[in-house]
Design a binder for these strands. Structure first.
Lengths: 229, 229
DNA sequence: GCCTAAAGTCTACATTGTAGACTAGTTGTC
DNA sequence: GACAACTAGTCTACAATGTAGACTTTAGGC
């Protein structure tokens, strides 16, 4: 938010030269602060002090821009494909991705949704890199390719599921969280939602990190055993 | 006058009387056949032979319409909360939901995405019912409320993750599937994506049902053990 | 027949993505 | 220096969308 209203630009700080990365990062900022709907071509153009049309030099259209954003975010994820301890590595990646998702909650719908409309082979390379690297990691650790794929699927499925789950209960201000939760639950018909209503307090304190970790332990050891036998 | 004016013998079919269910089901059909973007107020109005504006009697706005669709779809899911065999029940539900997702692939983004923008307590009741019922099932099977929530989260997280995973690789025509896959993989830079490219054939025959089932076995038995100890 | 409420329609408008033609600035070539 | 070729950016314009607000039509009850 270096330039909230647009006018604060001194003549010396001439317009930033544009390139794909600048465009995408600004777009990401915009999505982070104003949500997905806040990202319009016009708004982004204004943020960059350009005509909206100039953006089309750096992304074919809005959809491509969204793809670019997901790529950008996934690039923040570091994967060390040569780590011999695959379990530890997968565990670390999972926690990293979780934090990434919490840092960019508005991007998560993109992460989850964009691949649904693009066949695997045609996705932005940046989004395929984690897949490639994790497969490499697993195969490097001794798994057969087919087993590696199997492990990957179980792992990534679980991971994305957890993130979605957690984000559904996530609200920025923890105070407001409890309040909103109570308010919401109170609204539910008692006769039809007794359990849910009773669980209010338990719902309120949710340790996503711990829950993820437990799930991982269960999944990874299970997978290891399954594949050993 | 045997037909005062209501039915001014419009060319083809006389208008169906409107109500929320008709509107929502037609909307769902539209989403199924033409995708999410195909669902516009004007298009839906046309489908129902009404002015688009009349739809606002049955859904406050487009977002509410989407919520209604997710509710409609989730209503197709039967849950027997009094089944003493919780594992079998969860397993069956999972397979049912998977089939549901495959039957309405275009709705899956809604299923996953809508809850992210609505705090739990304010969601359409229909979308909370599965949660309530599964919690009931688990508590009925002897779990403490907190443990039930824990199990539910692991379970639903995994389930949604799997569905997303599978749908990412799902393409209607299996012939085209293989073709597109090959085509796409071939496009990938060899140096950067050796593993992925090599896995082409293995990727192509993916048995989502089996994979889901294995994952469930692992997860459920793991959870049972974890909670017993 | 009149009255009321519900159902449906018409018009109008602000916002959006983006096509297409154009301009200004930079660079390389002779 | 003249000029061509690019590259970056702008301007105008348009079709599509969601939806507000005022209106008209229909159905039932009295």
């Amino acid at each position: 938010m270096a330039n909230p209203k647009g006018i604060s630009n001194s003549p010396s700080s001439r317009k930033v030269p544009l390139n794909r990365d600048v465009v995408l990062s600004t777009a990401l900022e915009l999505v982070d602060t104003e949500g997905l709907d806040g990202l319009t071509m016009r708004r982004l153009g204004q943020e960059l002090e350009r005509d909206p049309m100039s953006l089309y030099r750096y992304a074919a259209n809005r959809a491509a821009l969204l793809d670019g954003i997901t790529e950008l975010v996934l690039n923040e994820l570091a994967i060390f494909a040569d780590d011999p301890d695959w379990q530890a590595q997968l565990r670390r990646i999972a926690h990293d991705l979780r934090l990434l998702a919490l840092r960019h909650p508005n991007v998560v719908p993109l992460l989850v949704t964009r691949p649904l409309s693009t066949p695997l082979g045609l996705r932005p390379l940046g989004t395929l890199r984690p897949l490639e690297q994790i497969l490499g990691l697993l195969i490097g650790a001794g798994f057969s390719p087919a087993d590696a794929l199997h492990v990957y699927r179980a792992y990534y499925g679980f991971l994305y599921g957890h993130i979605l789950n957690e984000l559904q209960e996530y609200i920025v201000d923890p105070e407001e969280n409890v309040a909103l939760l109570r308010l919401g639950l109170h609204r539910l018909p008692v006769t039809e939602f007794p359990t849910l209503r009773a669980l209010g307090p338990v719902l309120a304190d949710y340790d996503g990190d711990a829950e993820l970790d437990q799930g991982l332990t269960l999944l990874l050891s299970g997978l290891a055993a399954q594949l050993a036998g």
